[in-house]
Design a protein around this nucleic acid. Structure first.
Length: 406
DNA sequence: TCTGGGGTCCTAGGACCC
DNA sequence: TCTGGGGTCCTAGGACCC
């Protein structure tokens, strides 16, 4: 049975939130980004009115000002956008519990089991869009398809305030005429290398022999690209995932050379990382120092820790060693940053999880034992209930066997 | 007019072990 | 004394995404 995945994407999210907060801004060219005083900041979000002037995300604010002198420039308020995002998530939860927030302003929902609550999936999409517009005063675009990738591309083709559904089985036909850059993983570099071989559309990707694609982007990249071009993608909703890394970085308002000044800044960044780490109940086994020089060349210096930690003191010690490596090059620096990776749940968090899991098992075993008391030991086999034969499951089973053989 | 900050995923070379 | 691969870990770099 094929699933139906709804992808939802807020239109010009940060700019829309600012307009919702201050309706006088409606219909005006709104440009959100950086801090007002920071000459080096870039555009995070531009309203559709601003986009008509050629303003785009990631463009330097200074350039946006030249393109759109009458634009209204607003600094980012990430805290507020996060709150709105959480309220939108709550609205989505009224449709299905199977929600995967893909970023602050987009989400994937498995609506397979929810369509029957509405007349059809179109009615469901309208309901979601209308609820968000009524409650948050911002518009969203919805795509529906058999997997996350096609649903997202569908949404991307009908922004803003749009809705497009791709019937199951029609994925390939829908994608074929589109430009290669709609496919995930095709950015400016890959697009250029594909176009240099005359590959402009998704259809042309499918007509290209795999070895030729592999020569351009590696065998894995080629495989991924072909799968995407055929409209194949994941339909699995992952509701909660452990982060893979936590980082904080900062760009100086002008390039600096004095590492004595960098040290306290880096320590502060490391402390911010460690704080975020602990609030997720995580520990790290790897610390990376990032340095970007005035020529934009970026170097990283990493070290693995003998054991996972979330302690500032341990992280700062590791960072100090990395700094002594990093300061080797005598060049002006524009950005420094700290990254923590190879994350794991800390002991306390583990105990919490284990206790939860044990309680679940105890409940299961109580009911299993009750059946066995009535019908005999052989009446219930745990093998099928165990599913995957993981280490934890094994040890629980062994424990149970020991107990029952007494 | 030089190019933010938060992430994810992949590649590739060298070390090391078998 | 020289030498083949395979697997895995560590590190650095880069493409891409929002």
């Amino acid at each position: 049975m094929s699933r139906r995945i709804l992808h939802i994407d807020m239109d010009a999210f940060f700019a829309s939130v600012e307009t919702a907060l201050n309706p006088v801004l409606r219909g005006k060219p709104i440009i959100v980004g950086g801090n007002a005083d920071d000459a080096r900041s870039v555009v995070s979000s531009a309203s559709y009115e601003a986009r008509r002037y050629g303003v785009r995300s990631a463009m330097p604010i200074a350039q946006a000002r030249r393109l759109c002198p009458e634009g209204i420039f607003i600094p980012c308020s990430h805290g507020i956008y996060g709150e709105v995002s959480r309220r939108i998530e709550a609205i989505l939860e009224t449709v299905t519990p199977f929600i995967q927030m893909a970023s602050i302003d987009e989400a994937n929902l498995d609506i397979t089991g929810s369509i029957h609550l509405f007349k059809n999936e179109g009615a469901l999409a309208v309901h979601v869009k209308k609820s968000i517009e009524e409650q948050e005063h911002i518009t969203a675009t919805v795509g529906i398809a058999s997997n996350k990738m096609v649903a997202k591309i569908a949404a991307n083709t009908c922004k803003p305030d749009g809705y497009l559904s791709i019937d199951t089985g029609m994925e390939r036909a829908f994608l074929a005429p589109l430009s290669v850059e709609v496919l995930p993983g095709v950015g400016p570099n890959t697009r250029e290398s594909l176009e240099s071989r005359g590959i402009m559309t998704v259809r042309q990707v499918l007509e290209t022999p795999e070895p030729l694609l592999a020569g351009l982007m590696g065998s894995h990249g080629a495989r991924c690209l072909l799968d995407a071009a055929m409209g194949m993608g994941s339909d699995t909703i992952e509701t909660r995932q452990m982060p893979k890394s936590i980082s904080r970085e900062t760009t100086f308002s002008k390039d600096e050379m004095d590492w004595a000044k960098f040290e306290p800044v880096l320590f502060r960044l490391a402390e911010q990382c460690a704080y975020a780490l602990r609030s997720e109940g995580l520990e790290t086994s790897r610390v990376t120092l990032k340095v970007r020089y005035s020529d934009f060349q970026t170097k990283t210096f990493a070290t693995s820790l003998p054991e996972p930690t979330a302690l500032d003191s341990t992280l700062l010690r590791a960072l100090r060693e990395l700094i002594s490596k990093g300061r080797g090059r005598r060049a002006r620096v524009r950005l420094i940053g700290v990254n923590l990776s190879v994350l794991s749940y800390n002991q306390h968090q583990m105990e919490l999880f284990n206790r939860e899991r044990e309680e679940k098992w105890e409940r299961t075993m109580r009911s299993v034992d009750a059946v066995r008391d009535k019908l005999g030991f052989g009446s219930v086999g745990l093998g099928s209930a165990l599913g995957k034969n993981t280490k934890d499951n094994r040890s629980s089973r062994q424990k149970k066997n020991r107990d029952s053989s007494k």
